[in-house]
Structure formats: C-alpha cells, structure tokens
Simulated assay, not measured.
Amino acid sequence: MANNTTFVNADTTTNTIVIVQFNPAFQLPIKLAGSHNFTPWKAHVSLLMHRHNLFGHLDGTTVAPPISLTGNNETTLNPPYMNWFRQDQLVQNTILASVEPTLSSTVATVTSAHKAWESLHTTFANKSHTRIINLQDQLARITKDSRPDSTFNC
C-alpha cells in the first residue's frame, strides 16, 4: 500500500491538506514564559489552530480513530489513525516549540496535543486568572492623597 499523505506548510492554502506543518518561530511570536503571558500565548495558539481547523486536537474533540482494523482474521494498521497521529504530533511539537525551555517538561512528557494543552491549562490558567483578580484588587485600592481612585478627576 503506497503512502499518499500530503504534508503542507501551514501558510499554504489548499483544499487537499492532509497534514499541516507549522513554523512556530514565525507563526507564534510569543513564547509561553509562565502565568504572566499565558492568556496572549493561548490566544495565538488557539487562533493558529482554528485557522487550520485543528483546534480539535487541543480541546479533545478530534479523537483518534482506532489504531488498527481487523478483517478476514487479519489486523492491519489503520491509515486514518496514522494521519491523525502525525497531525497530532505536529500540533504537540508546535506547542513544545512555543514554550520557554524551562517549561518544556510540562509538554514533552505527555502523549498527545490535547494532554499538552490540558497540562498547560492546569499549570498556568488558574494562576493567570488569579493574577488578573489580584491586579484588579490592587487597582481598586490605589489612592492619591488618601482619596480612592474613583474620585480622581481625569
């Protein structure tokens, strides 16, 4: 059986895309460095994946087909699974390439793009949300000459 998988760069537009390859250095200019930039990093990755109809690899809605097929008392590798696996690995590699080296172990040890996405969310999303709430609280407490900021005349 011949392999007819087509690899294309993510910046090409064609209706025959089977496997999308990315250039994280060019397409994801923000590297995840921690909870302080998780939100903009997540937005960049999400938009890139949505553009290529691959966000399902991140949120888990694009599930893996069966690894093998059984017929006529014979088990064979399922070609759709191989295409899914290759694409998922490229998405996971894109995530890995878009995080700072100190955070790479969070992504490198998982087995799918979805698990990498979940791991980063677990690690940084709550901290990012907490940081936003803390900043809002700090802004609410800012005073000038013992007057709260709400009484300032701009």
Rank of each mutant, 00 (worst) to 15 (best):
P80C: 06
N9W: 11
A116S: 11
T12S: 08
R86D: 03
N4V: 03
N93A: 14
K127Q: 15
L90K: 09
S128D: 15
N78P: 08
S104Q: 14
T61R: 12
T61S: 15
I67E: 15
V110Q: 00
R147E: 13
F22A: 01
H52D: 10
N23V: 06
Q136I: 07
T6Y: 10
P29G: 05
L103M: 05
C154F: 12
R131T: 09
T76I: 13
N53I: 04
L139H: 10
L103A: 03
T13R: 03
T39I: 12
T16S: 11
A108T: 09
Q92M: 13
R147L: 15
N3Q: 10
I142S: 05
S146V: 01
P65G: 05
S46Q: 14
H57S: 10
L77K: 03
L90C: 06
L135T: 12
S146A: 14
A116T: 08
H52F: 02
D88S: 06
T39W: 00
H50C: 02
A116V: 04
N72T: 07
Q136M: 13
T16N: 10
F26T: 10
N9V: 06
L47F: 05
A140N: 14
T61Q: 07
V45S: 00
F38E: 08
N93P: 00
V20D: 00
S104P: 01
N134Y: 03
H36V: 06
I67K: 10
L120S: 04
S128E: 13
Y81H: 13
N153G: 04
S146G: 11
Y81N: 03
Q92W: 14
T123Q: 15
V91Q: 06
S105H: 13
A43T: 14
F152Q: 06
R131D: 15
A25G: 02
C154M: 08
V45P: 05
N4S: 10
V18M: 15
P40T: 08
L96H: 06
T111H: 03
H57C: 06
T12N: 01
D88I: 03
S105A: 12
F7R: 09
T13S: 07
L90R: 11
P80I: 02
S150W: 09
A97R: 11
A97D: 10
N53T: 04
V99C: 00
P65M: 07
V63K: 15
S150Q: 11
T94I: 03
K115A: 14
L54S: 09
I67T: 04
N134F: 10
N23S: 14
H44C: 08
K144T: 12
A113D: 09
N78L: 11
T6G: 02
R131M: 14
L28H: 06
S105F: 10
R141S: 14
T123G: 04
T12L: 08
R141D: 15
Q89A: 14
A43H: 07
H44W: 00
P66D: 14
